[in-house]
């Protein structure tokens, strides 16, 4: 089983600055591990049972590629000149090209991001592989993947042939920080740095015409004296008819 785990492939929207007029400044929002990346990595590591099994990392952007290397991945690839794109399809096309370049891949494990929910699906589309999204775990059984996920009030196991893309949705946002020994070991692990030209792809994006603040009212938040805040809060909930 040769698996690829895709990590650190989008900007953290929480770091973007939204100005009063609704325009958005992304300068402080760097490529960073997504909220589902730790869960995707944990699921991918469980797929590797020794022998010929191999887990390869794949990331994009020119930042530090060692996040996965410090958490148990032996080697990684980085598409260094791919910027953060609005178009999930374009991001996915580059990731799919990189997966082809890595070669011999049976499964791609990637966070099924709430922020960029089209990427995992579009990677599968570009590769013309099977896909299961919203997954919690993935296990290799007799050459097939057993993927668990929740559908309404049912926990379901989906049996998927390889090659496949599995989008992992984290159940919690807890990451395990690596120790100093792991961080030092990560520096010695290989990073294959490539560019769009090496993959023979371009990364177009859609045109942005501008941003504006939404018309919906922001939350009414009370602060100050607890008794006074409580009175205002209860009054507001009574007016809504929910208390």
């Amino acid at each position: 089983m040769r698996a690829v785990v895709v990590y650190k492939w989008s900007r953290n929207a929480a770091d973007a600055l939204v100005r009063a007029d609704g325009s958005i400044d992304w300068r402080n929002a760097k490529m960073s591990p997504g909220e589902d990346d730790p869960a995707a990595l944990a699921a991918a590591l469980r797929l590797i049972r020794g022998g010929d099994d191999e887990l390869v990392g794949l990331t994009i952007g020119d930042g530090d590629a060692s996040w996965a290397l410090a958490r148990g991945v032996a080697s990684t690839w980085s598409v260094e000149d791919l910027p953060a794109l609005a178009d999930n399809g374009s991001t996915a096309a580059v990731l799919a090209a990189a997966v082809r370049r890595i070669g011999g891949v049976d499964v791609v494990v990637i966070g099924d991001s709430r922020q960029e929910p089209g990427v995992a699906a579009a990677v599968a589309g570009r590769l013309a592989w099977s896909v299961v999204l919203g997954a919690q775990t993935v296990e290799a059984v007799d050459g097939r993947l057993h993927v668990t996920r929740r559908v309404a009030d049912v926990r379901q196991t989906v049996v998927v042939p390889t090659p496949a893309v599995i989008g992992i949705a984290a159940e919690s946002d807890l990451d395990r920080a690596p120790g100093m020994k792991e961080l030092l070991a990560a520096r010695k692990r290989p990073v294959n740095r490539i560019g769009l030209a090496d993959l023979g792809v371009t990364a177009g994006d859609v045109q942005t015409l501008g941003c504006r603040r939404p018309e919906t009212a922001p939350a009414r938040v009370f602060a100050g004296d607890p008794a006074q805040s409580a009175a205002q809060f209860v009054s507001a909930l009574r007016a809504e008819g929910v208390l």
């Binding site: 929207a13 929480a14 958005i24 859609v206 504006r212």
Partner: peptide
Amino acid sequence: LAGGQTIETC
């Protein structure tokens, strides 16, 4: 975008 803080036209 940004958790619904702004609406972008594409």
